[in-house]
Design a protein around this nucleic acid. Structure first.
Lengths: 167, 167
DNA sequence: ATAAAGTTTCAATTATTTTTGAAAGTTTAA
DNA sequence: TTAAACTTTCAAAAATAATTGAAACTTTAT
C-alpha cells in the first residue's frame, strides 16, 4: 500500500466513522484529509482529492470552521484561501466535546428539567415518569459537568483532580 | 403540561438526540418510552403510542435487545411478549460504551494501525501522514482503554473518587 | 470603474436511511 | 393436525439528508 492508497483508505474510514456518529460523511472526510496534510490546502485541492463539488466543499469547510477545528490561512501573494485542521488531538477532542455539549446536551437537559417538573402525581405511571426523568437529568448533568472539568484541565486532568482532592 | 404530554415531549426529544448521535430515531424513541414505563410493555402498545408499524417496532426492539439495553419479559398466562428497558443508568452507559467500542472504535483502530504502517517514506507528505496517523492510533487506543477500565471497574476507588469529586 | 479570481448560497436533484405492510414463519392451545 | 395469535422478514415506498451546480456575491488588481 503506497501513501496515496493509505491516505484514501484513512479518509474513507474516517468518513464512515463520522456518519455513525451523526457527522456528515464529507465533513468528516475533509477533516481527515486536512489532518494528514502537512501543508495548508486550497478549496480547489479538497474538491479534487475528494471528488466533491465546490458548494459541498464550501459548506463543509464553513461547518468545520464553526466547530473550531479547521482554520483559514492566508498565504502571501496568494488570492485563494487555504485551510488547515487542528492537529493537536487533545485540543480537537476538547473542541468537539464542548461543541456537542453546547448544541445537543444542554438543550436536552432543558427538556429533561421541564418534563421532570410536571405536577401530575395522580397515577403510579406519572410518579415513575417523574422519578426516572429526574434521575436521567441528574445523570446527564453530572456527565456534562465531568466533560467541562476534564476539558478545563486538559493535559493532566486526573492528576489535578486528585491533587485538589488531597488538599 | 400533563403526564402524557410530558412523556410525549420526552420521547420526541430523546428521538431527536438519538438521530444526532447516529442512532435511528425510532430506536431511541422506543428506548425512551420503555425507560419511563413502570411496567413491561407489549409490542402492540409500543406501536400505538409511537404510531409506528409492526415491522418497524419489531426490528427496532430486536436492535435494542442486540445492544443489550432492552429485555424481553414473559408474563404468566400471556402469549404475547413484553419488553422492558435497562433502567440503571450506569449500566446503560456502560453497555452503550462497550457496544460502540466493539462496533465502531475497534474496527477504526484496525485501519489506523494498517495505514500508519506503510513503508513509503519517500516524501515529506508520506512521513507526516505516518506520524499523524500513528498519533491518532495512540490517542484513540488510549481513550478506548480508558473506557474499558472505567466500565470494567466501575465501582473501584478511583472511579468513586472522581465521581465524588464531580458532585 | 471593470473584470478577473475567487467564495457563498440555495433550489433542485440525488443518495441514503428509515419505515411500511403484507407474506412467511413460529408457537401454543385445543 | 389445525388454526388462531403472534412475530419476523424484506422488497418497495416514503422520508430525510447530502450534494450539485449555477447564479449571486465579494474581493482585489489594474
Amino acid at each position: 500500500m503506497d501513501f496515496k492508497e493509505a491516505r484514501d483508505k484513512f479518509v474513507q474510514t474516517w468518513g464512515a466513522l463520522g456518519s455513525q456518529w451523526g457527522i456528515n460523511k464529507t465533513m468528516a472526510q475533509i477533516h481527515a484529509f486536512l489532518m494528514v496534510s502537512s501543508t495548508a490546502v486550497s478549496m480547489e485541492e479538497v474538491m479534487e482529492e475528494l471528488k466533491i463539488s465546490r458548494g459541498n466543499a464550501s459548506m463543509n469547510l464553513r461547518a468545520l470552521m464553526d466547530w473550531g477545528i479547521v482554520y483559514k490561512e492566508f498565504k502571501a501573494g496568494e488570492r485563494r484561501e487555504f485551510f488547515t485542521a487542528e492537529k493537536d488531538l487533545d485540543e480537537l477532542a476538547i473542541k468537539i466535546a464542548k461543541e456537542r455539549s453546547k448544541r445537543e446536551i444542554k438543550p436536552a437537559l432543558k427538556v429533561l428539567k421541564e418534563v421532570s417538573s410536571i405536577s401530575d402525581n395522580s397515577s403510579a405511571e406519572a410518579k415513575h415518569f417523574k422519578e426516572q426523568t429526574t434521575k436521567l437529568y441528574d445523570f446527564v448533568a453530572k456527565t456534562d459537568t465531568m466533560i467541562d472539568k476534564v476539558t478545563e484541565y486538559k493535559d493532566n486532568w486526573l492528576t489535578k483532580l486528585i491533587v485538589k482532592m488531597m488538599k
